[in-house]
Structure formats: C-alpha cells, structure tokens
C-alpha cells in the first residue's frame, strides 16, 4: 500500500462517517418522519400532563403491591441467574476450560444476550401461563447471558501467584480457593450482581405488558383506558422504587473495592 498509514486511516474514518450519516438520512426518509407533527404535539403533551394532576392516590395500595411484585421478580430472577452463571461462567473462562468449551459457551451466552427480554417473557408465558413465574424465568434466562460473561471475566482475572503460594505452603484445595481465589474476585462478582439487579429491575417493568407479572400490567391498563391520574401515581411509585434501589446498590458498591 502506497498510502501513508495515518493518511489512509484518516480517509477511511471520513468515508465511514459519511456513510453512516447517509444511512441515517435515508432511514429518516424511509420512515416518513413528519416534523410538523412534532411542532403541533406541544399542546397535546401539556394536556396529557394537565390531566395527570392531581395524582389519584386511591390506587396507591394496588400499585405499591404491584411494584413490590416487580422488585421480587427482579430479585428472584437475579438470584436464579447467579446460580446459573457460576457454572456457566467457569465453563466460559479461558483460564479454566479448553478453547473448544469456553469459546462454545461464550457463543451460547452471546446468543442468550441477543434475545430481547420481552420475547423471552412471551415464550415463558406460553410455556408456564400468566403471572410472576414466567417473569422470574424470563429475567433469570435473559440476565444469565450477561452475568455469566461477567463472571467468566472475573474468573479469568484471578492472579495465580498467590494461589501457587498457598499451594506451596500446604493449604488444602478448599483453603486455596476460599482464601486465595474468592477474596480476589468476590468484590467483582458482587458488583456485577448488583449492576445486573438494577438492570433487571428496570427491565422487569415491561414484563406485565405480556402478562408476566409486576407493575407493567397497570402501566398498560391505565394508559389504554386514559386514567392519567392513576398513571401519575404509578409514575411516582416507579420513580421512588428505582431511585431507592439505585441508592442502595450505589452505597454497597462504594463499600466494595
């Protein structure tokens, strides 16, 4: 190649940017997005917000109950995902299993991550019926794709030198892993779990849309029946729930180093 390296990559970068820009413009026209409608929406949006006030607190009880169910679905789903992610993470760790195994398991995990939660939830509802059970299963399945990948990365990061030192000093196999391996990775594993729990909580809000339990059912019901004051109560409860959980996990993550 006669082109100077940086000159070549600079031109390549420009062409890529131009191509991406062109795709975005084409997509805009293909969808027929009408900007005048955006301008006219202001009034309707205001009307929507006006009809939310004051929030209808009569549904606070039922909404809080549903929100609690969502938290519980996320919690149990995350717990099941941890159980599945430990063996899968070990199998996917390049330092633990031969290439054929860890590459295959990594592909499997990527495939799991690729299936949207809502699709998994619909399949689970079809399989086990309505209610929180399909929600829990969907969250567990969906989040294992990411959590097991994170666990595998943590297992791969283990420093073998202290392990060798413990082994040389006559520690038993259990002692080696309890005192040598676990302290190295436990904070990372806990951080991964809390991060995934936060994601699971937010993602599980939509489970109710397909009948898989939780607060999503009320989101759908109230909006479709134009009960905006109830939607307001719902929004407040969801906000409080998400912020509270994030504050707790943020605090816990700060303790772990």
């Amino acid at each position: 190649m006669s082109t100077h390296h940086t000159g070549g990559s600079g031109r390549y970068g420009f062409l890529m940017t131009a191509a991406i820009g062109l795709v975005v413009v084409l997509a805009w026209y293909d969808l027929g997005l009408d900007t005048t409608r955006l301008g006219e929406s202001g009034g309707r949006l205001l009307d929507f917000l006006r009809r939310m006030v004051p929030p209808d607190l009569s549904v606070l009880g039922v909404v809080t109950e549903a929100a609690t169910e969502t938290v519980e679905i996320a919690l149990i789903g995350t717990a099941l995902s941890i159980v599945a992610s430990i063996p899968l993470g070990l199998l996917a760790a390049g330092t633990v299993t031969p290439a054929l195994v860890h590459v295959s398991v990594k592909w499997l995990l990527a495939a799991i991550r690729g299936i949207p939660l809502i699709l998994v939830a619909m399949i689970m509802v079809g399989a086990v019926g309505l209610g929180p059970l399909p929600g829990v299963l969907a969250i567990a399945f969906h989040s294992t794709g990411m959590l097991a990948k994170f666990f595998a990365e943590a297992f791969e990061s283990v420093d073998n030198r202290p392990i060798a030192a413990l082994s040389s000093a006559g520690a038993t196999a259990v002692q080696i892993h309890w005192f040598g391996t676990l302290p190295q990775i436990a904070p990372d594993l806990l951080r991964d779990v809390m991060f995934r729990f936060e994601l699971n909580l937010r993602e599980s809000l939509v489970l109710g849309l397909v009948g898989a339990g939780g607060i999503g059912f009320y989101i759908q019901t109230y909006i479709r029946s134009f009960q905006y004051q109830k939607v307001a109560t719902l929004t407040i409860v969801i906000l409080i729930m998400v912020i509270a959980i994030e504050a707790i996990t943020y605090g816990l993550r700060r303790i772990l180093r």
């Binding site: 202290p162 030192a165 000093a169 005192f179 190295q184």
Partner: peptide, 15 residues
Amino acid sequence: RKIGFVFQEFALVER
C-alpha cells in the same frame, strides 16, 4: 509446612 517459599513477585492476595 516445613518449607517456606518467598517469591520474587511477593504472591500476596492484593485485596
């Protein structure tokens, strides 16, 4: 137990 080994790179559990 009877043999202590000191490594070049210390081999401590850093955390």
